[in-house]
Design a protein around this nucleic acid. Structure first.
Lengths: 140, 140
DNA sequence: TATTATAGTTACTTTTAGTAACTCAAAAGT
DNA sequence: ACTTTTGAGTTACTAAAAGTAACTATAATA
């Protein structure tokens, strides 16, 4: 069995770049792509952040806090978060039903990352928006 | 003109959460959602990271370094990055054409964030994958 | 008996991502 | 002279994902 990946290669070398891709793309399990793709829809990050600001919230409370989200989209979002172990879902068997959502420790550890990225996004959004405008002008 | 957003509210209070959403969701310009949605397709992050590892690269060099990417997808990815001001595109008017891509300072400042998030993703992927398996079992 | 509340589903439409095959213009091979 | 190669794309299409609107269940309440 030949080991070719993750071998130390000179920094910035073509070999080092190739190793990155052997490790990430070719093995077909690139965690960052996987995770970012889960975070980057229209509602997931908002949901994590509001859950991060509270201990626990009920379905309808969350829904009221996210203007514009539909019931289906909130369900889908929360289920995906639960599936990934970022959120717990606790059902109290009452009628009308009562379901509480809460971030897991794993979920809470991600909130920090999201806030950092959020800061970067907020700081640089102006440049990005200006860049997009210039790009449109350049095309015409 | 009434100012209701970004006013200091007690930490963890419902009011604080509402402010977050007034500022981000309702104003219809949430930078983090915007930016993450640009990053989270199948190729963008990889492209940024390999550009981060080099000074500059030609179209075909990048293509060779990302196994499986099609020409169209690489074009789309690079154009979006250019549009957002994360990458510069320099055309040398020759035949056959020669086009070089390079991260801008803005792009380079993002690479750091991506590596941090990448670390988090790598560290926690195991838990997430296990969680997904458990979730499937729970459903059956 | 009709209405409200909570937490969803189901069936559908729109949008986005991705693929495969084609283009252009010059240079080099045969 | 004609065919092939090269680099950097387009075009036209298909598959997949995201999102919407309308419906459901069950008990309590008016």
């Amino acid at each position: 069995m030949e080991v070719t990946n993750s071998v130390k290669a000179p920094k910035g070398s073509r070999e080092e770049i190739k190793n990155y891709f052997s490790d990430n793309v070719k093995t077909k399990h690139c965690p960052i792509t996987d995770i970012l793709s889960r975070l980057s829809d229209k509602w997931t990050i908002h949901t994590i952040i509001i859950l991060g600001k509270s201990e626990n919230l009920r379905f309808t409370e969350i829904k009221k806090l996210i203007p514009g989200i539909s019931q289906r989209m909130l369900t889908v979002t929360l289920r995906t978060l639960e599936e990934d172990g970022l959120v717990t879902r606790t059902i109290y068997p009452q009628i009308p039903p009562r379901v509480e959502y809460e971030l897991t420790p794993l979920g809470r550890s991600l909130v920090g990352q999201l806030i950092e990225l959020s800061d970067w996004a907020n700081e640089n959004m102006v440049h990005i928006l200006r860049s997009r405008e210039e790009y449109i002008l350049k095309k015409n």
